[in-house]
Design a binder for these strands. Sequence first.
DNA 1: CACAACATATGTACTATGACAAGTATGAAG
DNA 2: CTTCATACTTGTCATAGTACATATGTTGTG
Lengths: 169, 169
Amino acid sequence: MKNTTNAVGPSGDARTRHRDDAALESTLTASRALLGVIARSLAPVMDTVTLPQFRVLVILSNFGPLRMGELAQHVGAKQSSFSRFADRMVAGGLIARAASPDSRREVIISLTEKGERVYAEVTDARRREISLVLQDLSGPDLDAVRAGFEVFARAAGEPSADETLILGI
Amino acid sequence: MKNTTNAVGPSGDARTRHRDDAALESTLTASRALLGVIARSLAPVMDTVTLPQFRVLVILSNFGPLRMGELAQHVGAKQSSFSRFADRMVAGGLIARAASPDSRREVIISLTEKGERVYAEVTDARRREISLVLQDLSGPDLDAVRAGFEVFARAAGEPSADETLILGI
DNA sequence: CACAACATATGTACTATGACAAGTATGAAG
DNA sequence: CTTCATACTTGTCATAGTACATATGTTGTG
């Protein structure tokens, strides 16, 4: 399935398109490789949290403590569903409910120490995995990786929270 | 594993380590960006297939038709569980059961046209998304992306099937 | 042929997720 | 102080995924 026909668009001359294609193929290959990295980093915690639950850890790590409703919105769940979803995570010791200082009807969810640990475990593993890949590279190769990935990341931009949450990562 | 504190390891002088770190950070950032790409490409089919079901589409696309038991092994499910899992996918029109020509007790699972379409939809979308990112880059930037990603992909190697299946991608 | 090994399907059961509707407390507006 | 909206929780139900034990049909072997 090398359907390159439609993927690139009508830009420029032959040499430009060839460049495009080469970069596209390299990106696709690298994206698979990165998926492997991500998957490996996630694997060790998959018996402690489910993927949807890991989303919540990610969100709370990025945003800090949130109200129930806000959190439910972030994960795209109905607030009623989320209440029991939270029950399970509380039971698992990953998050904690706390009374809001602002209003007694609000409930603030925050990461427990265990929740933080699980999240850190994954991100640390990700760094380790990538380091492992990079450690055998020569200096110029490292520079090439850095340069290429920087360009790509700048062009792609940070994915929105909603986007990556599709995968729960 | 490796040196967890530093994530990079004890190799070489300050300049080398600095290079390492820069490449690591760039890779982490790019990995998030790529996750966004992957997530966006997956989103449109998420109301047709679940993530575990999409795994099966991926496997069948890569390996071609497989026996029930083989397929169950690939997804890491017990055969008995997988039978009903398959039921749902058959009901969804994504895969088809067929008698094996070799043995009447074997059942061969293959992608239906719809299953292939759903899979292609995602991979095409992935290419489109990446093309979209790349299309605004200058020639030299494209070359940088291609070079960097090639190096990385070569160093990382293709992830094993088992690995990426953790994520269902 | 009889019987063990194999490939799949089914009975049963549990957890996770998620939707809708209704209930409960709290806060705000008049 | 009433009334209404807000923020959660709970009752109820449905589906997906997974497991274990068991049944059913098929092959291969002695």
